[in-house]
Computed example of a mutant assay.
Amino acid sequence: MYVELSDEARRYIGRFDELTGVAPTDCLVEGDRLVFLVPAGEMASAIGQAGETVEEAERRLDLSIELIEDADTPEAFVANALSPAAVNAVTISEQNDRVAYVEVRDADRGVAIGADGSNIETARRLAKRHHDIDDIQLT
């Protein structure tokens, strides 16, 4: 699926690649937070030993950075987007709209939703952009 990036997002992707050696496939600029979509299998390189690489990128960019690992299937993608919440199952309904129903432990609902709904909204935006999922609902 084709994702259109803003010039600002492209600049942050390039800068993150320079700093970490990992080229994200997408970037959401959300106020004082950047959300990078990291290719599958490259999360460890993007984070670095004990988080040193991503912490240095945060310091140099002067923004908070969140990393989400890409996945081949929509179900795995949604689970990764809601991490670190423990996702038990993801079911994609293809009725009128494409909706991902996500089963999370009660203890992890707050983590999946995030402060003021920021985590689930980010997951919704990325799922729409990369897998044409219209909504994500927690069950």
Rank of each mutant, 00 (worst) to 15 (best):
E55H: 09
N80W: 02
L37W: 01
D32C: 05
L61S: 12
T73F: 02
D108C: 06
V99L: 10
R60I: 08
G114V: 00
A89S: 13
E58Y: 00
A79M: 15
Q49M: 08
D62W: 02
D106E: 15
E52V: 14
A81F: 02
V104Y: 11
I92N: 10
G117M: 08
V111T: 15
V87D: 07
G114Y: 07
G48D: 06
A115V: 04
V102C: 12
E69L: 07
E69Q: 12
G110E: 08
Y101E: 12
A112N: 03
D62L: 00
L28T: 02
L63A: 06
I113W: 02
E121K: 10
G41S: 11
E42V: 07
R59D: 10
S83I: 03
E58V: 01
N119V: 03
S83N: 04
D108S: 03
A40W: 00
A79W: 01
G31F: 05
L67A: 03
V102G: 13
N96D: 15
A79C: 14
A107M: 06
A100L: 08
T91F: 03
I92A: 11
P39E: 00
D70F: 04
I120N: 13
T91Q: 14
V111Y: 02
V102R: 14
A46D: 09
E56Q: 11
R33F: 05
N96F: 07
L61T: 05
A40E: 15
I120V: 14
T91V: 14
V54H: 09
E69W: 00
V102W: 03
Q95C: 00
P74C: 08
